[in-house]
Design a protein around this nucleic acid. Structure first.
Lengths: 224, 224
DNA sequence: GCGTACGTGTCCTGCCGATGTCACAGAACC
DNA sequence: GGTTCTGTGACATCGGCAGGACACGTACGC
């Protein structure tokens, strides 16, 4: 799941970012509405969390603009006040749901899940298997054959992405977007480094390498 | 897909070039509008990415000129600012779409794809087969019969081009343009050299040669 | 509150494959 | 036979990639 978070309060943003991040979701955060709208694309994000009160452009205004442009991504409005009037105003502007602060993270997550409800894809399965590889998103565990792999969160996401496309090249750009939520090239060996770490755990101890490099393009996971 | 990129910022150009290149698309880059327009009339492009702000000739001016000349190629306008006014100005001048920086590469690609929407051709298939040759663009793999061919990126593109026109002559100029994104003749044996390397892997180990030279013109791949 | 361990991202280095140019030999055409 | 075009080996260069070292921030246990 890719979530776009538009929230000016650093505290709240941090709280949400961490919470959803722990669930394996990718959160892209913008404190201002303007830049955030630029980042937003209908296909890329599963849902948007939008703060009602923002410096510069108000949440409602941003939402109106968004809907005016014909973008139909699910939007969850976040607000300190949750009076009936606010609620109505928000929903009228095109919000799909409304949540007042303070809120429980679990509730936020639940609502996002229901908002972003999509036809069940490979991407949504809780357990993926590719050959002797098994990845369990709920238990946050990965195995190769009988050996349990001790992966860091980043390595886990990386492997997740690869396993979603077995036998297909996964480009570096794609990984930057899906794993790190970056829309630009950091021009460092970020991907290489983590790929190297993943390989150290995934391939090094075994005879056959599952991850192959495709020079100038990206990486492939050996298909089953 | 053949894309013409008009962008003065080297950083952005590199990012786009690499990203789209990873997807197997060919990107011809010009930092200035003037020369770019000349190239446009020479080559066949599926879409143009045009920066809004350019030194010398402004993006809008270039676009107006282009449309004035009756060229109807799809144009995607790229800009730092994406206010409503800019958007309208761009679209009025004849742009087909508008994208503000920063953007996700996947979004750019998606929009280009929809802009360049063409009848699904060989050029768009993920797997091409010509006789005993099989080329899989997604897996980035090529086979002749049961033998997997270990091709470099350039060789892969070269074979791709040949396989798109089985039994037809592919000119050297065409290859320079489609594989290398060159709109001029480098006056070296660039194509010959790489063709020789491709042959070494594609024809040398087998009895029947699939690639034939057409003197003074180009090359033909034996049809199925 | 403090120290330690871990995760993460950046930088650096070495290695190696890919790439483009050139020179020369060979083939095709006149 | 002469000329032009093509094939291919040699060569230098470039750039991508792997992996180690390091710095920073955070989480956790004491």
């Amino acid at each position: 799941m890719q979530i776009l978070l538009i929230e000016d309060d650093a505290e709240t943003a941090r709280f949400i970012g961490r919470g959803l991040g722990e669930m394996g979701w990718t959160v892209v955060h913008h404190p201002e509405a303007g830049p955030a709208l630029l980042t937003l694309s209908a296909g890329r994000f599963d849902a948007v969390i939008l703060d009602r009160m923002l410096p510069g452009m108000d949440g409602i205004a941003a939402l109106t603009l968004l809907r005016g442009a014909g973008i139909s991504v699910p939007v969850l409005m976040l607000t300190a006040r949750a009076g009936l009037d606010d609620r109505v105003a928000g929903l009228n502007a095109g919000a799909d749901d409304y949540l007042g602060k303070p809120f429980a993270l679990s509730e936020l997550a639940a609502r996002l899940r229901s908002l972003a409800r999509r036809p069940p894809l490979v991407a949504e399965a809780t357990v993926i298997e590719v050959g002797e590889l098994v990845l369990d998103r709920v238990a946050h565990a990965a195995r190769r054959g009988d050996v349990t792999l001790e992966l860091s969160p980043t390595e886990f996401k990386l492997l997740d992405q690869l396993m979603q496309h077995p036998g297909e090249v996964v480009t570096r750009t794609m990984l930057l977007e899906k794993v790190w939520g970056l829309t630009f090239d950091p021009k460092t060996s970020l991907v290489q480094t983590h790929m190297s770490r993943l390989r150290a755990k995934l391939d090094k101890p075994f005879a056959r390498d599952l991850i192959q490099t495709v020079r100038g393009v990206g990486y492939v996971l050996a298909p089953s």
